[in-house]
Structures are given as C-alpha cells and as structure tokens.
Simulated scan of single mutants.
Amino acid sequence: MARCNQCIPNGAYPDSVFVHVTDLAGSPWAHWDIERLDNGKYTLKADSGKYAARCNSCVPGGAYPDNVMVHATNPNGESWAQWEIIFLP
C-alpha cells in the first residue's frame, strides 16, 4: 500500500492509495507512520505529512463511491481519517 501522486485523472485530491510498490527500500511513499489516537483508533500518516482517509465520490467514474485518498490534515477532528486495526488469529 503506497501513496500515489496524480494517479487518478481529475481526482478530488492529488494523492491516492494503491497497492503498487514492489521495492520498499527505495520507495518512501510506501512507508506509513501508524499513530494511535486517544479513542483507540489509528491513523496512517504518509511521507507527505498528510493522512490516509476515506473519500466519497472522489474518483470520477469509479466503480465504488468510497476510496482512500491522502488528504486529511487533522486526524483527531476528521473521523474519516481514523482506522480500526483488527488483528486476525
């Protein structure tokens, strides 16, 4: 999972999230800082300093209305940038 700049033509934001990196060592855009919030949820902070967040109707012609873009700046006040991490056995 990595930040992708200008990968969605006419998207609502320039940065989106895709699974496209094969060389993690040379790809800072594939590194995420995981931060735990006081409410028990987590944020995913990209190398750009912005956070991965759900975005509704941000991909023109997209097959699904919700996508992940890297656009949030205040994850404490933006619930769409808060993620629940579930550990499976």
Rank of each mutant, 00 (worst) to 15 (best):
V68E: 03
S57H: 14
V68M: 11
C55S: 07
M69T: 05
N39V: 04
A12Y: 09
S16C: 13
G40H: 02
A30C: 12
H71N: 08
M69D: 03
P9E: 14
Q82C: 02
V19R: 11
P14C: 07
A52V: 08
A12T: 06
W80A: 04
C58H: 01
A81L: 04
N5Y: 15
N39E: 01
P65R: 14
A25L: 14
G77F: 04
I34D: 03
P89C: 07
I85N: 01
G11E: 15
V19G: 05
Y13D: 08
I86D: 10
D33F: 05
V70D: 05
Y51A: 02
F87V: 10
C4T: 07
V59K: 09
D38H: 05
G40P: 00
F18P: 00
G40R: 04
V19Y: 02
A53P: 01
V19D: 15
P9S: 14
N39D: 04
G40T: 03
Y64G: 07
N74W: 07
I85R: 13
M69V: 03
H71E: 07
S48N: 12
P9Q: 13
R3F: 00
K45S: 02
K45D: 01
V21S: 05
A25F: 08
Q82G: 00
I34M: 12
Y13T: 08
E84Q: 13
A25R: 14
N67S: 15
S16E: 14
M1N: 00
D15C: 09
P89K: 08
N56C: 03
G62F: 15
V19E: 13
P75E: 02
L24F: 11
A52K: 07
T43Y: 05
Q6K: 13
T73P: 00
S57E: 11
E84V: 06
L88S: 07
Y13K: 11
M1H: 13
E78T: 11
H71G: 05
I86L: 11
N56F: 10
D38M: 09
Y42D: 02
Q6Y: 12
D38L: 09
M1A: 13
S16M: 09
P89F: 08
D23N: 14
Y42E: 03
D66T: 12
A2T: 03
D23M: 11
A81G: 02
Y42N: 02
G77A: 13
R36F: 02
V70L: 06
E84Y: 08
D38R: 11
F18L: 14
N76I: 03
H20Y: 12
D47G: 08
A81P: 00
A30S: 12
N67A: 15
A72K: 02
R3G: 07
V70T: 06
I86M: 11
V17L: 12
P9W: 12
T73S: 11
L37V: 02
D15H: 15
P28W: 09
D38E: 12
C7D: 06
E78Q: 14
I86G: 02
S27I: 05
D23H: 10
D66W: 12
F87P: 01
G40I: 07
G49C: 05
C7R: 08
F87T: 06
